[in-house]
Design a protein around this nucleic acid. Sequence first.
DNA 1: GATGTCGACGTGG
DNA 2: CCACGTCGACATC
Length: 175
Amino acid sequence: MNVTADPEWWALILPTAEGEFLAHYSEQGLCELDFPSEIGGRNSPAAQREVPAQVLRWHEFTTAAVTSVLKGSSPAALPPLDLSAGTEFQRRVWQVLRGIGPGRTLTYGQVAEAIGRPTAVRAVGGACGANPVPVLVPCHRVLAANSRLGGFSSGQKWKRLLLAREKVYLLCWFI
DNA sequence: GATGTCGACGTGG
DNA sequence: CCACGTCGACATC
């Protein structure tokens, strides 16, 4: 059967105390999460065709989960995640990230070891940056060596905020 | 100690 | 080619 001309995804606003995130869903689940201020007025959700009940249900899980993480606690449940856009390597990295609980951190090097590619440290950084579902796939819990913050594609202030909510204190804060 | 350079790695432009 | 959300080793002051 032919695919339709319509893109098979929906974008829904996700309001939080920190602003409006934008959540994208495919038919398989949550496939992208954008921080507030990245939105910049694109994709007015009002212009979309009807959103299936299934997606609305997922969105409630996403909203609750994101709200939880922003408060520094562990989400009770996640919506299904559609990470199929990632490469094999990236998905292995993201899988490791999903195992890092709130308030815990790993370094890029430790993640590289965890996937059995101890020298691919920089590539791990790339995979973290390519993570389509930040916050829920907690790439903010990966720090540079010596407990330094490291980078964050969506802006270091978000990384700092998320870590602060989880009561992770960076070494440099005490110097 | 404090800096600087280099090679390793996967991915996208 | 190059540029990245890096790291550790080594060189040289």
